[in-house]
Amino acid sequence: MAVRDITLGQYFPGDSCIHRLDPRVKIVCALVYLVSLFVVRSFWVFGLCILFLAAVIILSGVPFRFISKGLKPVIFLIIITMLINVLFIRTGDPVLTIGKFYITNEGIYRALFMGLRLVLLIFGSSMLTLTTKPIELTDGMEKLLSPLSKIGLPAHELAMMMTIALRFIPTLLDETDKIMKAQTARGADFENGNLKEKAKALIPLLVPLFVSAFRIAGDLAMAMEARCYHGGKGRTRLHQMKLGRVDAVAAIVMVVYLGCVIASRYININIF
């Protein structure tokens, strides 16, 4: 396992205007974009969504194959969603009939519509994680959620937990690697056997891993206390987030875009 090579999250390093956007603005913009996809009612408005996303992708300079990688784990979900739409939507005119079974034009239309929406959802959210460092994401989230801490939402704690989780992913991978080697040296077999045997073989890996994760957590808690950590109260930050001109432009573009999408619901251009 080449633990040293792993990248945290799926950040694609770059220095484009999209990368430089304030994380708070970027998170809000991404959310607005995702919501806008659910406002869309017809295909031609999706054209606008695609155009917008394409512009963002080109500006960011992230190669398309990186973005499409995000599709891999959910491709099944998308196909199943589309199939269900095709097979179970009974309204509209039948276009294909095999015996009792038929497919309607409305079914195909809906399936394509849902499929496109899901793909855009994935691409849209990938653009956020691809152009924002994980640490900036957590910082941005903390800042955005901080007004909610007044009603009891532990914004700082959540962000701190995410920061620590990110920090310890490589450490725990290293640890897993070490335990695996140690157990293999003692005759454990992780490779062979059927599913049940393989699952059973994981026990001697998982138990020590949990033990060491708790030990690490204890050590870390002590180190944090020794470094004066006492929660979010009275804490300052090294990196001050400042809104710049790019952020203003992004906000305006986003508002215009959202306006167009919403307006499209009331303008009737009937192509289909």
């Binding site: 640490i135 450490t171 690490i216 180190a223 300052t236 090294l238």
Partner: peptide, 25 residues
């Protein structure tokens, strides 16, 4: 050394203590 670093970026980690005691940025 592994179990006392908090952040996934070196300078952010060094800043952790000063941030906790509320030093100006």
């Amino acid at each position: 050394p592994d179990n006392q670093l908090v952040s996934s970026i070196v300078e952010d980690d060094v800043a952790f203590g000063p941030e906790n005691i509320g030093m100006p940025p």
